[in-house]
C-alpha cells in the first residue's frame, strides 16, 4: 500500500494519501473551504503550503477554480463536506468540470449520515444521485480506510473528474490488504449461492455481518463491495445476478438514484431475480446523539439486511 496505515479513519487515510500523492506528483494541488481540520487537508497544507489553496467558505468558486487549475495542467483535489462539495457546487461541477472532462478530484467528506449531530443540512443523502447523472463523472465510495488508500493510489491515473465519498467516523476494516485493487472492479468479499448483496461504503460491513448470521440459518449470501458506483462494472453485476434467488442493494444514501438504481439500470435488459433496495427511504437526515443510533433509525443495519434476504430466500 501507498502508506503504512495505522488508523481506521477514512478521512485521516485520505489526508495522509494526499500528502503522499503530493510527494509523487508535483502537479497535485489541494483546495479547501474552511473545513481542513475535518477533511484532513491540513496534512497537505503542512507538507506543501505552496500547493494548498484555502478558498474560504465558497464552494462554487472553489469548484470552478479547480477547473481552471486542471485546464492549466494541475491535478486539483477540492474538499468540503459531501453535501456542499456536490450539491452546493452542482452547476459548477457540471459545466466547468464535467463537460470539458477535467481531471478534478472532488472529496465529499462527512458523507451520508456520518455527520450524525449536525442534521439534515449537513447530511448528504442524494450526492451520488445528482453526480451520477452527470456524464463523465467517476464516483468512488470506499468501505474503509484500507480501501481509501487503494483508491487514492489509483486516483491520479483516472481520466476525467472523480468524486470520492468519505465517511466521517472510524470504520472497521473489511478490505483485504494484499489483493490488487482496480478502480471500476466489484469486490466479491464473501461467496454465497443464494442471494447477492451489493453494498457500498460502511454498508459493506453491515452486509458481511448479516451474511454471517444468515449462514448459521443455512442461507448463503454473496457480499459484493461496489466501491466504484460509476462507471459501474455492468458485466460483473449481470454475472452475479445469475443463479441467485434475489438481489439486495445497500447504501447510506437515498434509494432514489444511488447504488440501487445503478444496479437496477444495469440489469434492465436481463432476466433477473427480484431486487430489494436498502437505503434512505426518500427522506432527509436528522440529528442524533451517535452514528449507530441514527443508522438504526433509518433501517441501515445488518438486521434490516438479514430480514430482506430472508424475505427473498423465502424464509
Amino acid at each position: 500500500m501507498m502508506i503504512k496505515l495505522e488508523t481506521k479513519s477514512l478521512r485521516e487515510a485520505y489526508g495522509l494519501c494526499l500528502v503522499e500523492l503530493g510527494k509523487r506528483n508535483k502537479n497535485v494541488v489541494v483546495l479547501e473551504a474552511d473545513l481542513g481540520k475535518s477533511t484532513r487537508t491540513v496534512l497537505f497544507k503542512e507538507a506543501f503550503p505552496d500547493r494548498f489553496f484555502e478558498m474560504g467558505i465558497a464552494e462554487q468558486n472553489m469548484a470552478s477554480t479547480a477547473a481552471g487549475f486542471a485546464l492549466a495542467g494541475k491535478i486539483p483535489f477540492y474538499n468540503s463536506f459531501a453535501v456542499f462539495a456536490s450539491g452546493r457546487a452542482f452547476d459548477q461541477i457540471r459545466n466547468s468540470i464535467c463537460i470539458p472532462k477535467l481531471k478534478v478530484r472532488i472529496c465529499g467528506s462527512s458523507c451520508g449520515l456520518s455527520d450524525f449531530g449536525d442534521g439534515k443540512t449537513h447530511q448528504s443523502v442524494e450526492d451520488v444521485a445528482i453526480l451520477r447523472a452527470i456524464p463523465n463523472m467517476t464516483i468512488l465510495s470506499p468501505a474503509d480506510a484500507v480501501e481509501t488508500v487503494m483508491m487514492m493510489e489509483a486516483m491520479l491515473d483516472v481520466d476525467g473528474p472523480v468524486y470520492i465519498r468519505i465517511n466521517r467516523n472510524d470504520l472497521p476494516i473489511v478490505t483485504p490488504e494484499n489483493e490488487p485493487y482496480k478502480i471500476g472492479k466489484i469486490w466479491e468479499l464473501r461467496k454465497g449461492k443464494d442471494i447477492a448483496v451489493f453494498a457500498t461504503g460502511y454498508m459493506v460491513k453491515k452486509a458481511l455481518e448479516a451474511a454471517e448470521e444468515l449462514s448459521r440459518e443455512g442461507i448463503e449470501v454473496r457480499v459484493l463491495n461496489v466501491s466504484t458506483i460509476k462507471p459501474l462494472d455492468t458485466k460483473a453485476v449481470i454475472s452475479h445476478s445469475k443463479g441467485v434467488k434475489g438481489i439486495v442493494t445497500v447504501e447510506e444514501h437515498s434509494v432514489i438514484g444511488g447504488l440501487g438504481s445503478a444496479i437496477a439500470e444495469a440489469l434492465r435488459k436481463e432476466a433477473h431475480p427480484p431486487i430489494e433496495f436498502i437505503g434512505i427511504q426518500d427522506k432527509f437526515g436528522t440529528s442524533a446523539k451517535n452514528y449507530e443510533e441514527l443508522l438504526e433509525a433509518y433501517g441501515l443495519t445488518s438486521k434490516a439486511i438479514a430480514d430482506a434476504v430472508r424475505g427473498m430466500a423465502g424464509r
Binding site: 453535501v83 456542499f84 442534521g119 443540512t121 449537513h122 436528522t286 440529528s287 442524533a288 441514527l294
Partner: peptide, 28 residues
Amino acid sequence: KVKTLEGLLQGHPDMKTPGIEAVTGSLG
C-alpha cells in the same frame, strides 16, 4: 435532548421547531 432522535432541537435551524423562521446551516 438537543441533537437527539427524541428531541425537537436539531443541529441546525429546522422548521419543526417553533420560532425558527427558515432552514439555514448551509452558509450563505
